[in-house]
Design a protein around this nucleic acid. Structure first.
Lengths: 209, 209
DNA sequence: TAGATTGTTAATCGATTAACAATC
DNA sequence: TAGATTGTTAATCGATTAACAATC
């Protein structure tokens, strides 16, 4: 297991390698090459080989990579070869959509607890789970050893909610609130911000149309 | 208006600058500085000044930036100072959540048409809009001059749907399918992939817990 | 004026790309 | 063997950071 620190940007590409390998596997292909992967992803083959080199040697000269083996190896590196318990915070429209989304559970991320702070919602049954009072996170999260949270709360409370989650032991947050969180570096944060993406694209669009 | 090509990575930061300026404005602050913005965003002040320098001079020495003015300028640069019509393709669980989400419309991105290919859904009224047959995109999109699409379709059909959208005149796609699209470079694509983000974070988590 | 902060240039840093010996 | 593709080193490229004169 490579212990020299691997750049964030490399880690960020591993999930898409994994995704692409899964597709190749589904299509029944046994071997692939850095060239083929690069073409599918629109990046250079050298970059893929360099990225993988951080973790070991996974291919054979002249042959390329065995799809199945490389997939397993990358899954292992990402800790995607196991199940993770996840807490969902905020069960408004967005939170409900997230909890419906089956893609997480199928890939090993299971929403085990749902929190909200609305007395109307607390205690209600949602998707087979009782909605818990957000104030009880200190009782619930540590005992269940949950390290990952998905935040679907208003921007106005996002920072405060995040800080409490950290106190409760959360170490990775997938943030759906369109705000930049300021948190200690030992906590990983990834933000989903569709509006930013739309604005980024509209820059390139002809404003006259 | 700066015409020398600005790096993608810079354009990608402008929306978060805009977001932060809106927050400052909401809090009633009239002036800010690259230092303050940098601290809020966890990036260096020099980077912010350098980014802005691509487009002009927006500050005053010793004073910093007028929040309102800088906000307007960045909005203009991003073409976020106008309204855009958007097509939503796919009205399953995810598409429904997206169409409910009010954040887009409030920021100028209006979902004007909804497409699906399920005969059960076509013709039904959803959120005040009649769901259109995806096969009619060639009639509808060009006449309404819609350049932006949000894709919430299965991975298996994403590539094919994207290609048809381009023929119908779409030039920017916000893709929710977890797949890497291969498209001509004159089309901008941004992908929303929560699973990739979760896997990226789980890399850093202690696998033993 | 003195202090602060800009816009910009130069220095540093890191990531991508090209090239190639090794070898399946 | 000849062809293909790896892993890796060296060269290039681009982005971030540091520093500072200009000036509000």
């Amino acid at each position: 297991m490579a212990q020299t620190d691997v750049p964030d940007v490399v880690i960020g590409r591993l999930p898409i390698y994994l995704q692409t390998l899964k597709q190749l596997q589904a299509s029944g292909q046994e071997f692939t090459s850095s060239k083929q992967l690069g073409q599918k992803l629109g990046i250079g083959s050298a970059q893929i080989r360099k990225d993988l080199a951080h973790f070991g040697e996974f291919g054979k000269q002249g042959m390329g990579y065995e799809v199945n083996y490389l997939q397993q190896q990358i899954a292992q590196i990402l800790h995607a070869d196991r199940d993770w318990s996840v807490a969902l915070v905020g069960i408004g429209d967005l939170g409900q959509a997230i909890s419906h989304y089956s893609g997480f559970a199928h890939k090993g991320f299971h929403i085990e607890v749902i929190f909200d702070n609305d007395p109307q919602k607390i205690g209600q049954n949602y998707n087979g789970k009782v909605i818990q009072d957000f104030n009880s996170i200190y009782q619930i999260l540590p005992t269940q050893n949950i390290k990952i949270a998905i935040m679907a709360v208003p921007s106005t409370s996002a920072q405060e909610v995040a800080e409490k989650l950290i106190v409760a032991g959360i170490r990775a947050i997938l943030n759906y609130a369109p705000i930049s969180l300021t948190l200690p570096s030992y906590v990983k944060v990834q933000s989903m911000d569709p509006l930013s993406h739309l604005q980024q694209m509209s820059y390139y669009l002809d404003p006259l149309t």
